[in-house]
Computed example of a mutant assay.
Amino acid sequence: MTSRIAIVGGHGKTGRAVAAALARRDVVPVPLGRAEWPVLADHLAVCAAAYVIAPNLHPDEPSYVAEALAAVEQADVGRVAYHSVASPYVPAMPHHLGKAVSEDLVRRSRPTWTILQPGAYLQNLDLTADLEIPYDVDAVFGFADLAEVGEAAAVVLTEDGHAGATYELATRVATPAQLAAEAGYVARRVEPGDVHPWLRAMFAYYDEHGLPVGTGPLGLLLGRVGRVGGPA
């Protein structure tokens, strides 16, 4: 029987990337949104594992994750992976702290768990023209390719050796200015305008610190520098 894996919050770009990676492994992805929450456990009951993604800038991500985990446990799903963020324990970025609290909930849940902490997506930068961003163009980031994040999720959901693991994910380390120059364009900083306060706080943090993330864990997961093995 073909394995089915649920993607809770699976209708956005991250969910679609995870679904595509699972399908390449002959796994049936089951994307689930808030419409399914009244009977979420019923949908999860036919799945071998679940990947939990909260909506971007969710006002109370821990509550969202707690509800998802309750349904996972009710459905007796044996494996769960949570989509977090690189550097979740940063007081200057409130939405990161929400993921830190959610990580704690995942670690104390009953199923076998894995946590993925991707850096900023490369796909969030428009490199088809001069790049305009609301933070320092020379700040250093560990950028993650969306398709590779999806593949990493598929690995930890379907292979052994990842129980209790937390992986930071980055495809490459660069500055926005470097990425723009490689594409033949110039990067410049612009004022952010009227944006969510959490985003303004994030931009201020990026100005001071960037968001460095190492590339080693993703390389391991995707088989570029060996494999992660051992019992589940």
Rank of each mutant, 00 (worst) to 15 (best):
A92P: 04
V52W: 11
V52A: 09
K99I: 04
V106P: 01
L57G: 14
R79Q: 03
A66V: 01
G119D: 03
H83K: 02
I115L: 03
I53Y: 13
V52F: 10
Q123K: 12
H95I: 02
L131I: 08
N124R: 15
P55W: 13
A129I: 02
E73F: 04
D130V: 10
I133Y: 13
I133C: 11
L57C: 14
A50V: 03
A66D: 12
V77H: 07
R107I: 00
W37R: 15
G98K: 13
P94Y: 03
V85E: 05
E103Y: 09
P59F: 12
S84W: 08
Y51G: 03
V46C: 10
N124D: 15
R110L: 08
Y64G: 03
T128E: 14
A129L: 03
P91M: 08
R24I: 02
P111V: 02
R79M: 01
P91D: 12
R110Q: 13
A41R: 11
V28Q: 15
E73V: 03
S102L: 05
A70P: 07
P134M: 10
W113R: 05
Q74G: 00
I133V: 14
L127H: 13
H95P: 03
A41L: 07
D126N: 15
G33F: 10
A70Q: 12
L32K: 06
A68L: 15
W113C: 03
